[in-house]
Write a protein that binds this DNA or RNA. Structure first.
Lengths: 218, 218
DNA sequence: CAGAATCCCCACCGATACTG
DNA sequence: CAGTATCGGTGGGGATTCTG
């Protein structure tokens, strides 16, 4: 019921305090899954195939106590504090992309792909696109413009998307980050594409996973 | 010796990959301690009083295998990949500072204080200061200018510092982040101060821990 | 079907003692 | 000082079951 002996770093350091709240196994990945909107318990399990039900339930309970997650009509949602973890996840993703050992053949959740694209998009070069991405059963809408990038769960509410990509999440990830041209990927049936071919290729060209190397300071 | 069964999230997600590398307990706090330069095993233990010797040894071994840490002449140092974790730690600290439950009376390592100041400094308002901070046995030099902030371990190499603060790390943290004026803090003997009083106060005024609340998007 | 509760097992964590 | 050895405790992973 309650977890009195919750393990703490017992430091005054604010980073250690953050890790006291979201440093447990799976915690930040649960936040990742909630980042684009509320999810049911079973949605979370689908997006995190490695987590067991009891651990997930406990994480949700703990994060609810910490004010990070809140029960919502359709499952669980992030509180503003939980949404504030986006810079943490973004920094982890940006760093993780540069570390060797990453294997894109392993399971990628639809939400994880959408967030990785939000991290890696070269916004400065972006044209204006309205894109629908169908990753398995899940639908997302991406809107780009020079310098800006937005993604929401669900089909676009205002206008029909000019570009539509559909397929398994890993196949979509390969199309987005791989070197193979869209025409070939679509022709091979790996993913389905609808829209202007040149615009579709231009959209995909915005995304790249950097190879190993540099860092940032300050 | 080796850890064949190392637990992995087994996902293609780049954030999950990052957590596979630095998600273990203590890992990011070890990186924190190394962030301002190499440290010996015993230095790390002093900065992380909660970690036991075997766990610390194992983390160092694992992080060395992951290319994050490297044995150095004087202990352990970060590789470029390890230094690249600064944005992660910065984001955690910025978020953690806004979460309730933070207790600045608990142990704060000298390195942790220096990094928290680097995170919370209002650079835009910064004047030009050269500051020596003596936190317990450890000495750091901070150089600020409008829009910029730098901290290095050790006494300044070029010019003598105009401001010198000395005391226990927690007392320094209280002086930096508390509301009490420098004159009172120094008069009460909580910390020692040398330099121009008004400039010293102006320097301390650059730092503040935000109360709970907002978030960031993108 | 959603999700909570319970079981067992094991890897990891944490503390102490020990060694070169 | 810089770790290693050992051992008990705990939290995570998996499966099963119960309830609404």
């Amino acid at each position: 019921m309650t977890y009195p002996g919750r393990r703490s770093y017992d430091e005054g350091c604010i980073a250690a305090h953050a890790l006291d709240l979201v440093g447990d196994r799976w915690a930040l990945l649960v936040v990742r899954e909630l980042m684009l909107g509320p999810r049911r318990f079973s949605d979370l399990r689908a997006g995190l195939p490695g987590v067991s039900a009891n651990v997930l339930a406990r994480r949700l309970e703990e994060m609810e106590a910490a004010g990070i997650v809140i029960p919502a009509a359709r499952g669980y949602a992030l509180t503003p504090a939980g949404e504030g973890l986006w810079p943490v996840i973004r920094a982890l993703a940006a760093w993780g992309a540069r570390q060797p050992g990453h294997d894109p053949a392993r399971f990628i959740s639809p939400t994880a792909l959408m967030l990785s694209m939000r991290v890696t998009c070269a916004r400065a070069r972006a044209g204006t696109h309205l894109v629908e991405m169908r990753a398995g059963e899940e639908i997302f809408t991406i809107a780009t413009a020079p310098g800006s990038y937005g993604v929401t769960r669900g089909p676009g509410r205002t206008a029909p998307a000019g570009l539509v990509f559909a397929g398994g999440t890993n196949a979509l990830a390969a199309a987005v980050y791989g070197a193979q041209p869209l025409a070939e990927v679509a022709a091979a049936g790996m993913i389905a594409f609808r829209g202007d071919a040149a615009e579709g290729q231009g959209f995909l060209d915005l995304f790249a996973l950097p190879p190993p190397q540099p860092a940032g300071s300050t």
